[in-house]
């Protein structure tokens, strides 16, 4: 089998991601889950009418998710120990949806 070479990969893929699930009052928990990563087709081209530039900008983002909830360890009394995070089922090059997503650029 041939491994995908990340240095040259283009497209948008589900890819493993590890992070520390933490909230104040609880111990942290290392979590490995599926997230999205890739390189999407993007361009800026001249056009003949104002504003003279046409942009096509898409980012690799979640297309379909399921939510997972885990219980953080050793939480202080009165602190909700449950932590919910998204798991990528499918990722696609698309517009970042500000309704569901914190959209950051550059």
């Amino acid at each position: 089998t041939s491994a995908i070479d990340l240095r040259t990969f283009i497209g948008c893929a589900v890819r493993e991601f590890t992070f520390l699930a933490k909230k104040p009052g609880c111990r942290g928990l290392r979590v490995t889950t599926d997230a999205c990563w890739g390189r999407c087709e993007t361009w800026e081209k001249p056009v003949l009418e104002p504003p003279y530039i046409e942009s096509y900008h898409r980012v690799c983002t979640y297309n379909e998710t399921k939510m997972m909830t885990l219980k953080l360890p050793k939480c202080a009394p009165g602190v909700d120990p449950f932590y919910t995070y998204p798991v990528a089922i499918r990722c696609d090059c698309d517009i970042c949806s500000t309704a569901t997503t914190e959209c950051e650029t550059a």
Binding site: C36, W37, W43, K45, T61, P86
Partner: peptide
Amino acid sequence: GAAGACVGHCESSAAPSPR
């Protein structure tokens, strides 16, 4: 007519939000 455009693939990702 001819002019310069920028085309290609740039890196992006999406993941669970940081704290």
